[in-house]
């Protein structure tokens, strides 16, 4: 099962350049045409499930606008003695 991730795109920094959209291996990013940033850009957002938290969008982002998270895989419970 692929890892589950999610991204947060900053309204302050995103300029809607679309580079992350083309770079996303899962094709889950698009511009949010129903939202404008304070500077007047349509920012990127994930529009469907499938983000793996691979962070490629953040790697290509020219504005360091994307924060990437990934769900932690379960770790073994601490052993008690």
């Amino acid at each position: 099962m692929p890892a589950k991730g999610w991204i947060e795109v900053s309204d302050t920094y995103c300029k809607g350049c679309e580079i992350c959209i083309g770079a996303c291996p899962q094709s889950v990013i698009e511009l949010n045409m129903s939202h404008l940033t304070p500077k007047g850009y349509h920012p990127a957002h994930t529009f469907k499930d499938g983000c793996t938290g691979c962070a490629i969008c953040a790697v290509v982002c020219p504005d360091a606008a994307i924060t990437v998270y990934r769900e932690m895989t379960k770790v073994a419970a601490p052993i008690s003695v």
Partner: peptide, 14 residues
Amino acid sequence: NLVYDRPEGFTDTP
């Protein structure tokens, strides 16, 4: 959970 965040070497200025 954090995989990638804006680097500390940056200021907050867009």
